[in-house]
Simulated assay, not measured.
Amino acid sequence: MSIAWGSLLVVFIVSFGSAVAVVVLVAFALVALSGRATATAPDSRPALMTAGTGTAVAGICLVAAAAIVLYGLYIIVA
């Protein structure tokens, strides 16, 4: 029995990249939601995005992160 180190390296790189992508997308979603909160605060500095834009960006980021997770689960089950 031998270990296919090349295949193991490919699996590690893909799983690491997927994990980083999910974390970055969730972080962007949280930043977009916090931008939405500061846009509605009465005594805050001007926001970079409106409340609607922040919600849309957060929704898109969370849907993309969920799609990555669900695709990974599909690959495992199939």
Rank of each mutant, 00 (worst) to 15 (best):
Y71F: 09
V69R: 00
M49F: 13
T38A: 09
L48A: 14
L33C: 12
G6K: 08
M1H: 08
L30S: 14
F28L: 14
F12C: 08
P46I: 11
V77H: 14
G17N: 13
I68F: 05
V26G: 01
V22W: 01
C61P: 02
A51I: 03
I13T: 12
A51P: 06
S15H: 06
S2W: 05
L33P: 09
S15P: 02
M49L: 10
V23R: 06
G52T: 06
A29G: 14
S34I: 06
M49D: 01
S7L: 11
T40N: 04
G59R: 03
P42A: 00
T50R: 12
A29P: 02
V57T: 11
V22C: 03
V63P: 00
A29T: 03
V23D: 02
L48R: 13
A64T: 09
W5E: 15
V31H: 04
L62F: 07
G17P: 07
A19D: 06
A56G: 07
F12R: 11
A56Y: 06
S44P: 10
S18Q: 12
I60P: 00
F12V: 11
G6P: 00
A19Y: 12
S34Y: 06
A51Y: 01
A58G: 12
G6F: 07
A64N: 02
G52M: 01
A47N: 11
I75E: 07
I76T: 10
V20P: 01
A29R: 04
L33H: 05
A39G: 00
G17M: 15
A65C: 03
F28C: 14
A37S: 07
V77G: 09
A66Q: 00
L48F: 09
A78E: 09
L48Q: 04
S18V: 06
G52Y: 07
V24F: 08
V77E: 12
A67R: 05
V22Y: 01
A32P: 12
S7N: 13
P46C: 08
A67L: 05
V11N: 13
P42S: 05
A32V: 04
A65R: 09
L9S: 06
V77Y: 08
A41W: 10
T55K: 10
F28Q: 15
A66D: 00
V57P: 08
M49S: 05
A47F: 11
A51W: 00
S15D: 09
A27D: 02
V31K: 05
G6V: 10
L48K: 07
A4L: 07
L70R: 07
V22I: 15
G52S: 06
V11C: 15
L9M: 05
